[in-house]
Amino acid sequence: MVVFHAVLPFVLAPLLAGLINKTKAVFAGRRGAPLLQPYYDLGKLLGKGAVYSATTTWIFRAGPLIGLAATVAACLVAPLGGRPGPLSFEGDVILFAYVLGLSRFFTVIAALDTGSSFEGMGASREVHFSTLVEPALWLGLAALVRITGQFSLHGVFSTLSPDVWTAHAPALALVATAFGIVFLAENARIPVDDPNTHLELTMIHEVMVLDHGGPDLALIEYASALRLWILGSLVVGPLLPQSGEGWEAVSFVAALAALAVATGVVESTLPRLRLLGVPKLLVGAGVMSSLALVLALV
């Protein structure tokens, strides 16, 4: 059972991306790619050779490796359906946030390694927006810790029983909304970034990985699928009561799938924000988190 829980994210994560794309296709009136398309893509990329720019150094090759290793480490901390992650410990939220930071740091410097001005632009935007995400994340976590009295992600989410929910509904709803914005921003989703854009000038995350190809790109794509999963679990966590029963893994995955569909709906119905408008949204998320914290304190 433990192994099952530990393996589940690594197997199912790419499916979320497939779900999002399918939803968008339905909204656009297309049939769309099959749900399993992300897996096919990964397989195809893994079968290719590699091309490296002459400008780059070993940093460029290390970027995808460290990016995925760090994301996997974050995955080991994230709880699933009321079960602790294999690496869960008191204070693991700190590790969670910082390994994601490590992954981002290497993505950014790998982008700068190419010497391309477009990738530099993407890197610059990435660090800008991720900095603004931090207060929202930390104050939201602080509010959750305050409400539950627990210090690990698993402890926090498994303490949120319906009773706790009725007592702290507004604060928890605010945290979940703030984390929802964090989820969209960190996964390069509309309204912050458009994963499907084809104009280098407007991209953020995608432009940073322009020069990667073959197995390296597979590592990157897989890491972003995992990130979708673990940040998604951060949104689902506060909303779904979990006590550790076996069947809760199913409901948890179902909730993640629902989140993916919701993301698809958001992407199909909302326009992308102007770049200058994004900071306002992220500050708004921070404000919601801090309002949640204030409510949790009262």
Binding site: K280, V283, G286, L291, L297, V298
Partner: peptide, 15 residues
Amino acid sequence: SSSMVIGMATLAASF
């Protein structure tokens, strides 16, 4: 953005 942050501080002060 600064207004929102100031608003947050005001809110804390109001509480």
